[in-house]
Write a protein that binds this DNA or RNA. Structure first.
Lengths: 119, 119
DNA sequence: ATAACAATTGAACAATTGTTCAACTGTTAT
DNA sequence: ATAACAGTTGAACAATTGTTCAATTGTTAT
């Protein structure tokens, strides 16, 4: 970021608008949290996992078969989903069944579908 | 993806569940479109742009100052946002003012915030 | 104890992404 | 016409990401 860029003619012209918007913007951490959440939805494997778990709880192995990737890949992605509090595990013997942590996932999906289906 | 992985003991056990879920899953393109949409929200610069435009329409130069990155970076990101039909441009002389294309952005944000504010 | 299987983890790798720089287009004013 | 500024574009680069492989942990049954 150069100084020249920071003080172009255009900016001086719209100084009031920029300052007003600046005052209404949330602080940095909020943006990072939001971005991290959406980043999770920005991968087809993870979207498929979430979609599947929304239909029925499943173990790692089943998800691997369903999505045609290794158990390892599924496990890595489930860790990310756990970290974002989107899924929760339930151990039953040797298997670990995963399900959605709450119904935010469903409503976030709905909003996304609304958008892409309107084009 | 190895064959061994595809036909583990576990899978045979839950064959019915997997098949039922498989039948209810949307087809591949739908997942790609969804992922592409969310990918857009998965970057702080883009989130900030969208948030800012939700408050007030702005030109490229103003956004650059507000977010403290180069006009080039803003322009690149705006192209992505245009491609996903999230923002629309309006030329006025030398400047191009951008605004939100519809109010999906706002409702998608709301769902995201609901989730992160509940932890 | 040991074998068998589900799941997790870390390292390595290729692929994708976001930024900047430099060159270019478009518009306005002199 | 030419200068000045807003915006766009493509190339290059560093950083991040998603996958697989190999090794490890956890659980159950023999």
């Amino acid at each position: 970021m150069t100084e020249a860029e920071n003080f172009s003619d255009c900016t001086v012209l719209h100084e009031d608008t920029v300052k007003a918007v600046q005052a209404q913007m949330p602080d940095e951490p909020q943006f990072y949290d939001l971005a991290d959440l959406y980043k999770v939805f920005g991968d087809t494997t993870r979207i498929k996992i979430l979609w599947a778990l929304d239909i029925h709880e499943m173990c790692v192995c089943d998800l691997a078969v369903l999505l045609n990737v290794t158990k390892s890949a599924i496990s890595h992605q489930l860790r990310i989903l756990r970290q974002e509090n989107l899924v929760k595990p339930r151990r039953e013997g040797k298997e670990v069944f995963y399900s959605l942590a709450d119904d935010h996932v469903r409503s976030i999906f709905e909003k996304g579908l609304e958008h892409i289906n309107e084009l």
